[in-house]
Simulated scan of single mutants.
Amino acid sequence: MSDEPLIEDDEPTVLEARLEAGGTRLDKALTGIFPALSRARLQALLAEDAVSRDGQTVSSGSAKAQAGLYTIILPPVISATPAPEAIPLTVLFEDADLIVVDKPAGMAAHPAPGSETGTLVNALLAHCGASLSGIGGVARPGIVHRLDKDTSGVMVAAKSDRAHAGLSALFAAHDIERTYIALTRGAPSPSKGRIETLIGRSSSDRKKMAVLRSGGRNAVTDYVVQRVFGLPAKAGGAPMAARVACTLHTGRTHQIRVHLASKGAPILGDQVYGSGSPATAVRAAIVEAGLARQALHAAVLGFVHPVTGEPLRFETAPPPDMGELERLLEAL
């Protein structure tokens, strides 16, 4: 690979290089075979599960490197500074240090190729002005966690650097209450349980995440089936759909979507992990409800205020598309 600047693109860039001999720290060894990437950048990519060796995810930069073929999934980069945009926000809480909002589906958390404008960052820059924390970088000021663009729900952003550092520490320690509501095809079995797996990049499609037998990072989700829809006529049969509450104990990319799919109950409307087709009646309900995304809503976010020490907890109901779909499913 050359030292030329990396080209921006709408799709992730896949880099590959072979390390002939190991023994040194992995992050240091990788700078030798990927000279266009700084050591700090490589450490960040390792933490994001974007690096693999011979198809197995590696995440510790301090571990000893081993010989093999290394692959890096380099996410698209936005270089332009985002501009403030007067986008209405549903603000649940705000003080001098942080702001909590109910993010709508269809709004990206921060600028990225294909979503350069209209993001939460653009809205926050207009709403908060110069008070927004700059620790997240030029393109991601104030952002300490993310929801997928098409996932709705509660998000917190930092307005001060001390809040940014404190919130980041809470998320790193998983000392955050996070519960999501999902509408699924069928229902996971048993009706209540814990899903604990390794999650990392799929070996068959490096743009997707997957449950892995080895490599990846530990991911823990507790779930409970709150309601089932379209009960079968025969005893022991599977329902057509379900409402499932998922509580995160870790925060891996696409964790809930991957975990529910691994239980044979993918989220309705999920175009990436929703393999298989719902029942005809469920498909009709999705169309009638106008659901054009995965039916996933971040309903609860609870944490201790990193500056004041005040316990905070926020809860919002799923937006109209999910609410209408659930109403239609109840009639099955």
Score class of each variant (00 low, 15 high):
P188K: 12
S189H: 06
S191Y: 05
E196N: 03
I199A: 12
G200P: 01
S202G: 15
S202D: 11
S204E: 11
D205A: 08
D205M: 03
R206G: 03
K208Y: 01
A210V: 11
V211N: 11
L212Q: 10
L212F: 02
L212P: 05
S214R: 15
S214Y: 01
G215C: 14
R217F: 14
R217I: 03
N218Q: 15
V220W: 07
Y223V: 00
V224P: 06
V225Q: 04
Q226K: 12
Q226W: 11
R227D: 00
V228Y: 08
F229Q: 07
G230L: 08
L231S: 14
L231Q: 14
A233M: 14
A233L: 11
K234P: 03
A235P: 07
A238D: 10
A241L: 01
A241C: 11
A242E: 07
R243A: 08
R243K: 12
A245Q: 04
C246D: 03
T247F: 11
L248Q: 02
L248D: 06
L248A: 03
G251K: 09
I256L: 15
V258M: 08
V258I: 14
H259C: 07
H259S: 07
H259I: 12
A261H: 10
A261Y: 00
A261T: 14
K263W: 06
K263S: 05
G264S: 13
G264T: 07
A265M: 12
A265Y: 02
A265W: 10
P266E: 00
L268P: 09
L268S: 02
G269Y: 02
D270H: 12
D270T: 08
D270W: 13
Q271P: 15
Q271N: 07
Q271H: 14
V272N: 01
V272P: 05
Y273D: 09
A279W: 02
T280H: 04
A284R: 07
A285Y: 07
I286L: 04
I286G: 09
I286T: 14
V287A: 15
V287E: 15
A289H: 02
L291N: 13
L291W: 10
L291Y: 04
Q294E: 10
Q294K: 03
Q294G: 00
A295K: 13
L296Y: 13
L296V: 05
H297T: 09
A298T: 11
A298W: 00
A299I: 00
V300G: 02
V300N: 01
V300Q: 08
G302N: 04
V304S: 02
V307A: 07
G309E: 11
G309T: 15
P311C: 07
P311N: 11
R313L: 15
R313H: 08
E315I: 12
A317F: 03
P318E: 04
